[in-house]
């Protein structure tokens, strides 16, 4: 068996150790440069190439409105102000849904200030939507971990339907129907939770309102 140290045993022990270390350092430099080329350039480039087969997804699932204008990403939540839109969850990313500053509130479950904030949010949502505070679901009053949660629970979407319909002068039943159509089930029937994508729901709402306007 060839020994790595066998060639350097003639010099002193310290010198031998130094030579071993020096040789290992040189190999380390060569090895790292080769691996940086392979794993840091060729591998990401190859995956980038595969990504071109699915450009919509690789580029961030951007979505356009009826006029073809890019209005955001179906994966990234965005703010919606005004009673005529379905409202997303509270967001701790920047000033709210800042996609360049993702993050959560990091406030603890026993934080008094967070509890007061949640109670205030609950009262506001109940008032705006004309429901009892205890009917407001948990996702409506809590900030997500990313601050960019694109989804709300089906319960929160249904709760908002009458208010949105009223603000837009649409039939409540038609808006409720829209929510039902926009509910995404669990992948494979068991993974994660049922959800409604707020941007997709509001885009569908916009289309419904446009149809309603031309019909009326």
């Amino acid at each position: 068996m060839v020994s790595e140290e066998s060639t350097s045993t003639s010099s002193g022990a310290a010198g031998a150790a130094g030579m071993v270390a020096g040789r290992q350092l040189l190999i380390a430099v060569r090895f790292l440069l080769a691996m940086t080329l392979l794993l840091g350039v060729l591998y990401p480039a190859a995956i980038f190439g595969i990504g071109r087969l699915l450009p919509g997804r690789a580029d961030g699932s951007l979505v356009a409105d009826a006029g073809g204008r890019i209005v955001g990403s179906s994966l990234i939540g965005q703010s919606f102000d005004g009673p005529e839109w379905f409202t997303p969850r509270p967001s701790a990313a920047g000033d709210g849904y800042d996609a360049m500053a993702s993050g959560g509130s990091n406030l603890g479950a026993s934080n008094d200030e967070l509890a007061a904030e949640i109670t205030r949010r609950r009262a506001d949502i109940a008032r705006v939507n004309g429901v009892r505070p205890e009917q407001v679901p948990a996702d409506a009053v809590t900030a997500s971990g990313s601050g960019l949660d694109p989804d709300i629970s089906p319960a929160y979407a249904r709760l908002q339907a009458p208010r949105v319909a009223q603000a837009r002068g649409l039939e409540v039943e038609a808006v409720r129907q829209l929510v039902t159509e926009q509910v995404t089930g669990r992948p494979l029937g068991i993974l994660g939770s049922e959800r409604v994508n707020v941007l997709q729901l509001n885009l569908a709402l916009q289309r419904l309102a446009a149809r309603d306007a031309t019909a009326g």
């Binding site: 969850r89 959560g104 509890a115 948990a138 996702d139 900030a143 997500s144 949660d149 989804d151």
Partner: peptide, 11 residues
């Protein structure tokens, strides 16, 4: 207050 442990979690 929230009714479920959804603070910091994704729907």
């Amino acid at each position: 207050a929230a009714g479920a442990a959804m603070e910091g979690k994704e729907v």
